[in-house]
């Protein structure tokens, strides 16, 4: 079953990349469709992150801490790696604190 998942996943992803590159030569001009495609990554990443991040750790408290750290650093335009690393470090520290309480 795992192979069925993997091949469906890979097949769909490849076709999405391959079909337009080989078939469509003319530019998409519809401004609404172009806008829809432009907004998709932001909508999608947000929906995947929240509220899932709150429940991805040992406790929602550390999840919230990680969320806040990530947003604050991202607002200051820190690099992807730095934000991800600091989020992990923050979660780790808060969970150690919670163990002591």
């Amino acid at each position: 079953m795992i192979y069925a998942y993997i091949f469906v996943m890979a097949g769909v992803t490849y076709l999405i990349r391959m079909l337009p590159l080989t078939l469509i030569q003319k530019k998409i001009t519809n401004v609404y469709f172009r806008s829809f495609l432009y907004y998709i990554p932001y909508a999608c990443l947000t929906a995947m992150t929240f509220p899932a991040i709150l429940y991805a750790t040992q406790s929602p408290v550390s999840g919230i801490a990680g969320f806040v750290i990530a947003v604050v650093l991202a607002l200051r335009k820190k690099s992807l790696i730095l934000v991800a690393g600091a989020t992990c470090a923050g979660v780790f520290c808060v969970e150690r604190l919670l163990e002591m309480l």
């Binding site: 750790t57 990530a70 607002l75 992807l80 991800a84 600091a86 979660v91």
Partner: peptide
């Protein structure tokens, strides 16, 4: 303990992509 903390790495990255 380390794995629990690393579980939020991708979320952190997504936030770093969207928020700016």
């Amino acid at each position: 303990a380390v794995i629990s903390a690393l579980g939020v790495a991708l979320y952190g990255m997504f936030i770093a992509i969207v928020v700016p």
